[in-house]
Amino acid sequence: MNIPQLIDMIDVGIITLDSEFVITGWNRWMENNGKIPEEKIVGKSLFQEYPNLDNSWFRRNCSSVFRFGSFAFLAQKIHGNCFPFEPASSFHSDFEVMQQDCTIGPVRNEKGDIDQIFIVVKDVTQIAVYEKKLISMAEKDGLTGINNRKYLDSKLIEEFERHRRYNHNFCLIMIDIDFFKKVNDTWGHLCGDEVLKKVTSLIQERIRTQDIFARYGGEEFVILLPETELEDGIKLAESIRKLIELEVMNSNGKTFSVTISMGISAIHDGIADSKDLLDYADKALYEAKTSGRNKVVSIN
């Protein structure tokens, strides 16, 4: 079997270009996925067919290949794709376009001069899908589906950094379900899980998309409110408190209701880091708990 045959049988796209970015080669994989036959595209300008590639980073990488004989690697993680093809399989519903890793390298003539370059296009959609799932598994709470504590901690650090740089204000609400242990003991753990799910879905619907809602531990939750003053945070907390109080829960044929206590704190100059802010909100929550529960307490 000779090499030209292999080029059409291999499961990656192979393109060759001359120094004017005119397409000189286009293998069968490119025909199938690009839906353009070789004879229709050879001789045409790459940028005419794929104007998305007519930008300085693509040209920069190509000219370094021509100049130095080096390789350029356009990773899916950064570029997503170079050629906007449909995903090869319908199972990849997470991505509307095929995710690709592309490699650009030199093609030398008999004299050893680089007069063309090649691009190898690899479909990495499936890997990207798995990676997305893994990331979401690492950031989400398994039971409620909302963010986990690890994710919150990282967002809190980012938000703190934004505040330090641009002086953007933000608030933090700490939430605890009142007498949750009693719910578990009386109605069972499955019922407790139902309550956690119900409370999170109610809160989730009430907050804004930019707010970050996370399960902090057991029956404790945190809401991070970017670009929010303390008064507005208190208003939101109060509306959430009422929402939960009025909700009638059903589990295993029983009906009942739960209440929540909340501690809230806004960022200010006396707060040194994100942990400090959590401590403030925690202190406020403790006060809400010890002064009768089902209430919002703020500290600043």
Partner: peptide, 16 residues
């Protein structure tokens, strides 16, 4: 991504 690209070009230039 930027570090990789710059690094790749500089390394490629020297070795090339």
């Amino acid at each position: 991504g930027v570090l990789l690209e710059i690094g790749n070009i500089l390394i490629g230039a020297c070795i090339g």
